[in-house]
Nucleic acid binder design. Sequence first.
RNA 1: GCCCCCGUAGCUCAGGGGACAGAGCAGGGGACUUCUAAUCCCAAGGCCGCAGGUUCGAAUCCUGCCGGGGGCGCCA
Length: 608
Amino acid sequence: MIRTHLIDALRSALARSGVGPLPATIEIGRPARPEHGDWSTNVALVCARAAGRNPRDLAGELVEHISADPPAHLRTVEVAGPGFVNFFLDDGWLHDVLRQVVAEGTGGYARSDFGAGTAVNVEFVSANPTGPLHVGGGRWAAYGDSLCNILARCGFVPHREYYLNDRGRQMDAFAESLVARKQGAEPPTDGYHGDYISEWVAEMPDGADAREWGYARARRDVAESLARLGVTFDTWSSERALVDSGAVAATLETLEGRGATYRADGAVWLRIDGAPDVVGTSDSAAGDNRRGRGRRGAAGGAISPDAPDDGHRRPRPDPTTPGSDAARTAGDGSAGRGGDRVLVRSNGEPTYLLPDIAYHADKLARGFDLLIDVWGADHHGHVAPLTTGVCALGHRREQLEIVLGQLVTVMRGGAEAKISKRAGNLVLLDDLVDLVGADAARMTFLLQSLASRQTIDLDVAAAQSMENPVFYVQYAHARICSLMATAAERGTTRPPLEEVALDLLADPRELEVLRSLHALGDVLAEAARERAPQRLTTWARQLAGAFHGFYHDCPVLRSDIEPPLAAARLWLAEAARIGLVIALDLLGVTAPERMETLDRDATEGGAE
RNA sequence: GCCCCCGUAGCUCAGGGGACAGAGCAGGGGACUUCUAAUCCCAAGGCCGCAGGUUCGAAUCCUGCCGGGGGCGCCA
């Protein structure tokens, strides 16, 4: 609202100053320092060169024009620094924010439609169905689910999808491990050695097909763990079903027909161009240019602890050169023949790559405009082969966006807990949820950027869960609810907003809450564009902080507070509540009316 | 060797072209007869890894280096 008014004023001032053509977007922002006004713009700096003007002179001219025809709420406008134009407004613009928040409510405030109905398929977690989810899986789950929430609020139509690699070597090894344990033997060395294998085998009926039974068991386990975090999927896609449907064979045919493949060593290879990754490369249609985050797949964890991976791999027999391209290097770290990858092994079995290409083609065929994959950094080498394959089928690169995220490290007992589904020293997502609860777990995962490695210390999580910011934010919400309840008890009802004198809200603490609320729309748009839910977490903490400050300094129901002021403050609290509910809901965290843990601790404290 | 991510306060991390750099925790000092003190306030703490470059302006973009993590299979 206020922004468009100011931008309009700037635009006409620029026109009157003879600046043209006008810049595509006029940037206007809220400066960090109050001396720089309520709003500030750099247009004069940006336009000066092209207009052949001195930035400060141009800014001065803009100020004159704007002062002559001031937009609503303008008090003064001035030139500052190298040529900024700073606007100083009366508090009314913030009171307008309060009205808007209340009018639009939890369902409508800070909603936008720049997604324009884009159907976006977000694939995340996708851990192999060979065991329970470990802690790291929770990070992708929390990320993917909240990202979908945020996208939806910005006008996208998200679809949550989980891809099950339910065929191939890993499934074989899993089945073999179950069978071995069933017979009282050790699983094969490349099999799965976790305790859960023994536990699950105890449930497995005699005569059951270990592969089918184990798959169903694992899948159920994964779904239950995710549900505890509040994450559910619209679609669970099966790699095996895709193969059985013939889609994989058809994909291979198309790739071969388009000359994207060649045969060597009895295998079918996909030619990799060494093209840059989708992620971190130039732009998609939406103008996105972000770095990678995310992860996909199985055990993942901090390291790959399994034996053969120590950099001392036996030298492969040198690729002789049946194809034409053997000498080429891929430039992306993928190996194989100069970076090329096998689609079909010499034994006739497809690798995971071919079905994966077919799978992404299938998603696009289902009508999605955009695919977002959330993968772990340990799958980075798979980015180029997959995107190459998908593009070779004729799809646009911008349709597939792969978000790479750094892995989760778990500390326990002061040391790093190694995570390996196969080696058996799992730290399960369920363990974390048991320890801190679903809310704290989700908020913790969404505290930082996916591009940063996350360390979760289970001892800290268990012993000092109160340190978690989730409580700070939830407490703000609970305080508001408590305030409202007390008001009701005392018969202090909120008059209709139109009858309330909002201009009584002039305390810095009050205005800070409103400023924070105003920012939500921008924050959500940024979070959606950058695929960065942690921005919303940061905002929620900020709003909670602003509210706690208000609560501390601005009594509402105290006897010396005049009713008109009390009413205005109650409405302010209501607006803050709306903001907190929106944010917590998008983050997948509950907004409790009272803090149970606080009650409990108080009781315990009193007992001692 | 090549590819990706990270390097910001003692610790964990926000910020990711704008004007003197932000929070939590730890540590120092203060505020509860009051709407829940899981709160609030004050002080302290920084060559934003290093060096160049682009720009009116760089923690932010580019290049190189250093340090940490990950990846480089006819595993997924």
